[in-house]
Each structure stands twice: as structure tokens, then as C-alpha cells.
Design a protein around this nucleic acid. Structure first.
Lengths: 187, 187
DNA sequence: ACCTGAACACCGTTCAAGT
DNA sequence: ACCTGAACACCGTTCAAGT
């Protein structure tokens, strides 16, 4: 059922991931889906969890900055792995982000860096918002490009630097910020 | 027409801001709206522009860090000024963010800080993603609280620190990051 | 120039009833 | 336990025709 939803998402996009379409693809009446999920939102939540599955795997790095870099990149890759993945997760985890797999681990890395629990949680959110926003944008641009190869020169900025470097720029800005906050306190 | 849309948004929320409902409130047939706007997306774009209107007013500060702080706070306030304002702007400005009023000014402040045009643009996006994500979350929590005064202890984190302080934490992280990037280069 | 009437092709959700 | 049939209350969008 979640597999069916993922298949529709990846082939036709989030806009076409409707309960009726999913029902049809499963050779079932629309109402049948409501025996398995209370509503569409819950179904999308299950899809989001599936997309974020790889976030549960262990991190290789043991230095905090490397851990954060690794987690942020892995999150981005999860989101980019399915069509409209970033948009779906972003929409589904509106404030339910709290339960997010990556969030807790990001916070742990921030604690290892020397932050208090409270600071680490805030920092984790900050980075999460960045990764989600950035990746939604990036993916929507991929979508646009794959369609009309849009009007002449697209956004002037996006030719020069490739997507991963752009992602890393914001990520480094964040890590530098954390380092600075810690640095002014310790030494 | 945009005024009517804003009124519905503020009273009933984004989910109830439908073309048919707007038409009814204007004592007009649904189809009539399509003489003024090509589609719903365009209408929402106009609403988003209205919400972000105050972003055009001049900034008081002349030091870059203060300018950025001022702009970020003002953006947050614009988004919080209407029900579901953050969600609407966030959804509407998916990648059309480029045209955003605040983005260019944020980039200007970053240039004044000593960044190149390219870095400044990237930094502006980074901050924008943060402000949008953070404010969408904050506003959705306000909405939830105003309704069911939800289950017992809500998110453990969100009692302790108030919303503006949480916002400032991420903002300072960003500014510190910018300062660090510049600092390691200049001196 | 601006709107009506009426349709088209959809949605999510509910719920008795069937097997 | 799991699904069908059928309905309810909606959507966004189009377009001839009216004024």
C-alpha cells in the first residue's frame, strides 16, 4: 500500500498521488483505503517515513562537524531519491517534524559539539529548515528543467554553481555559526 | 478581490481559501474570477505579494548584521500577520522565491558585509529558508494551540523558550556563520 | 469589459452492506 | 478482517452566451 503510493509519487508526482488514483492502481475501491489509514494525511506520513528510512542507519563520522555534514547530506539524498520527495516530507512534517528521525541525531551531534540540550534542539531545527527549504527548491527546479527546459536563461545564479556546492555553502555557514557560538564561550 | 481573499484567509484559513468560496463572498459566479486571474496559483501569488508588502519599506540600520536582523524579523512579522500567512507564502514562493522582495535586500546586506554577489545570494537563500521554515512551524503551532489546547505537555522544548528567542537563536547562528566566513578571509 | 449558467473532470471521506 | 457500492459535499477550470 505504501509501496503503491511511492510508485505513483515517483512516476506521476505528488499532485497525482490521490486516494482515488492509489485505489485504482491497487484494483480496489477508494473507500477500502480507509480501513488501513484513517485519512490521506496519515498515508502521506507513512510515505514520508519510508522516504526517510535511510536516516536510521548509523553515521560513520565521529567528529561532530563531520556527523552533521553527513546527516545533512544523507537527508538531502533521501529527499531527492523520489520525485517530489522534498515537498512531500516538507508538507507532511509541518510541525510533526518533531518525530523526525534525523532531528534527534542532529541534536546529538550538536551536543557532542558542546551545546546544551536546548541549544542543540534549536540548532537541529535551524539546520532542518534549511535542508528542507533548499531541497524543495532544488527539486522543483529539477522538475521544471526536465519539463519545458524553461525560458532562455533560468535563474542567473543557478548556472554557475552546482546544486551540491550551493547546498554545502549553507551547510558550512551553519557549522561555522555553531563553531563560533561554542568558540566564544570556551576560549 | 485580493482583499476578499485576504479576508477569507485570515478568518477561515488557507484550506478554506477556495475559488468557489471567494466567488461566493464576492457575490459572483466561480468562473468570473478567471477573467481577473488565469488560475488559483496566480491569485495566491497576488495574496503573497500583499502579505509581503511591508518588506519594501526602508531599513533603519546601516550596519550589515543589524540590517539582516531587521529584515529577518520584519519578514517573520509579515508572515505572522495573517492566519496561515507563512504557509501560503512558503507554498507560493516555491522557487518563485527569486522574485521575493526581501531576498534582494538580504543579499545587499550580505554584500555590504563583504561577500561576493554569488555568496551573498546563497546566504540570502539560506536565511530565507530558515525564516520560512521556522515561521511556518511556529504559526502552525499557534493554530494548534488556539484550537484544542492540545494533549497535555506539547513539545517539551517549546515551553521553556519563547518563539522570538528561538527565532533569534537560529538568526544569530546564521549571522555568526557569515561573520566567521568573512573573518577567516580578511584577517 | 465583465459576468452568468452550466457543465467537465475530478477530489477526500463515510458508511451500510456484503464476503 | 477486509472490501464494495453508492453516495455526500465539495474542488479548479472552461466556455458559450449574455449585458
Amino acid at each position: 500500500m505504501v509501496d503503491g503510493a511511492i510508485a505513483i509519487l515517483d512516476q506521476y508526482g505528488l499532485a497525482d498521488l490521490t486516494m482515488r488514483r492509489l485505489a485504482t492502481s491497487l484494483h480496489v475501491q477508494p473507500g477500502a483505503l480507509y480501513w488501513h489509514f484513517p485519512n490521506k494525511q496519515a498515508l502521506l506520513g507513512a510515505v514520508a517515513d519510508r522516504i526517510l528510512g535511510p536516516m536510521d542507519e548509523p553515521v560513520a563520522a565521529d567528529e561532530w562537524a563531520e556527523q552533521i555534514t553527513e546527516l545533512a547530506h544523507r537527508l538531502r539524498e533521501c529527499l531527492l531519491a523520489y520525485r517530489d520527495g522534498a515537498e512531500l516530507v516538507s508538507a507532511t512534517y509541518a510541525s510533526r517534524l518533531t518525530t523526525s528521525k534525523g532531528r534527534e541525531r542532529l541534536a546529538s551531534a550538536a551536543i557532542r559539539a558542546g551545546m546544551t540540550r536546548e541549544e542543540a534542539d534549536l540548532a537541529a531545527y535551524t539546520l532542518l529548515y534549511y535542508v528542507l527549504g533548499q531541497t524543495v527548491d532544488e527539486q522543483s527546479r529539477i522538475q521544471m528543467d526536465s519539463m519545458g527546459a524553461l525560458a532562455e536563461e533560468h535563474s542567473p545564479l543557478y548556472d554557475t554553481t552546482d546544486a551540491t556546492s550551493r547546498f554545502d555553502f549553507g551547510l558550512q555557514l551553519f557549522i561555522s555559526g555553531v563553531r563560533h557560538l561554542l568558540g566564544t564561550r570556551v576560549r
